[in-house]
Design a protein around this nucleic acid. Structure first.
Lengths: 149, 149
DNA sequence: GTCTATGCAAACCATTTGCAGAATA
DNA sequence: TATTCTGCAAATGGTTTGCATAGAC
């Protein structure tokens, strides 16, 4: 249902094509995400400042927004309070977050095929699996307190 | 997988049992949610202040948190920035939010049965459908820009 | 009368913005 | 050289907290 080949155009070209410039800060932000796999703006900023202590948090925010717009990184809302950015180099996966222990489990998109097809037929709704976050209880927390969290 | 009968104990009793007190503010907050169906803390506060202009926003926040803890209201994150509280008197439904126009569509939980069963088997993960929010494109926005948002 | 809940104001935290100077194309 | 970007600092907006008083039990 997806398998968009995504030619993975080098991000440098994509930037240029949209009239943006290549700056060391942008490269550092992208590197940080690829290195971390995923992280909050704050975490990404910390990673960036290892190599370039002068880079400002607001610059990180601005570049994360831009890179997301260009598809060079991906944003999901794992927690209520903070956005999380993901590297697009990671294989596609859906996030299962345990509302009890906070653990995040990755699930294969194939588990969602039926759902995606169903919603497309019944509601004409095209699910964006990349940003989907499913809350619930993980295998470890399930036995405890069958009632509510 | 769900179908917990939920005796719907009157919220007054539940409060008492947990050592909390019955206050007009709490009742107003609960009434506001039932009346609105759902709303942000801000919206709920506005609704409350119609009848009791003196009620403070922080009181609304405190009571929303308490009522959620007791299961008298339900919280989901429809948008990234603000939490939304739902009345538990509404029939269960899953929220489909369009990332393009912001519209929110309600889906029947039955559409998710296969997914819920699948994740339970493969990951031992018990999905909490009440809080699930599925992003994507609604029927109206689907035709536009097949690429990305 | 005791102890919880409220109102108020200040604190917080993540995120955004205005602006002058630095850097890219 | 013409703009775009950055760093800085201040503003913003939602949410939380400390404290004295009002109110429920």
């Amino acid at each position: 249902m997806d398998a968009t080949p995504k030619p993975r155009r080098p991000w440098q070209s994509v930037l240029r094509e949209h009239g943006h410039r290549l700056t060391p800060q942008r490269e550092l932000v992208l590197d940080a995400i690829d290195h971390l796999g995923h992280g909050t703006p704050e975490e990404i900023h910390q990673e960036v400042t290892r190599r370039a202590p002068a880079v400002n948090l607001s610059t990180v925010y601005r570049n994360l927004a831009l890179l997301e717009e260009l598809g060079a990184v991906r944003q999901v809302s794992l927690s209520d309070r903070t956005a999380t950015y993901h590297s697009v180099t990671l294989p596609a996966h859906v996030h299962l977050t345990c509302t009890h222990c906070g653990r995040v489990v990755d699930a294969h998109p194939t588990a969602f095929e039926g759902l995606v097809d169903g919603l497309a037929q019944t509601h004409g709704f095209v699910v964006d699996l990349d940003r989907l976050v499913v809350g619930g209880r993980c295998a470890e927390c399930r036995p405890l307190t069958p009632g509510q969290a």
